[in-house]
Amino acid sequence: MKFNKLIRKIHLGASMIIFAFMFMYVFTGFFMVNRTLFDIPEFTDTYDTITLGLKPGTDPSAYAKFLEDEFDLKGRREYRQDWKKNWIFGFYYPGENTVITVPPDQDSVFVKVSKQERTFYTVIHQMHVLRGFKGGWPYTVWAVFYDTAFVAMFIFAITGILLWWRTRRRYKYGGWFLAFGIALPLFFMLLYTWTK
């Protein structure tokens, strides 16, 4: 009996954690599935080359902060090196992305600013795909929420099965529903495995 109570509490707790996320992801996912209904604005790019008097050096993180202040940018900061060893600094903010390319041994920067008009769809899309730990504390907190939500989702599913198993006499068709629930994605997975 104690075990049942514990599982029930965990199941309930998990449902509380996931319910806001589930609403958000099903809602935004619905619009993404039907994105052909929307007029999605294109990104418009502008380019410029600017001399800054500073090289990326050995601390790209500090350099990213320097660029952020210099160009008065905001959003998620990301940086990487491309195959030519150029440093690529990205500043991603819903509806506005700025990409700055810095050659490794020069102090001039090639700036590409991509802007997209903010519409209902672009915000919906941004909500749905927001993830990852990079980019500052709000993004890290969001990523922690996101992690918590997917763990809670898994726990909700497993504890749900456990609770049903202990009351299976009452819900006698449960086995069929569970079989369907497992077989459905498995069937599609196998289809994709077998399709040439």
């Binding site: 992801y25 997917f150 763990v151 989702m153 898994f154 909700f156 599913a157 749900g160 099965i161 049903w164 009351t167 819900y171 068709y173 449960g174 529903f177 569970l178 369907f180 629930g181 497992i182 077989a183 459905l184 994605p185 498995l186």
Partner: peptide, 17 residues
């Protein structure tokens, strides 16, 4: 709740994963 949950358990696990 019980039957709907059991029927969507695979989807829930796929999405979680």
């Amino acid at each position: 709740h019980v039957y709907g949950g059991l029927a969507s358990v695979g989807i829930l696990i796929i999405f979680s994963f």
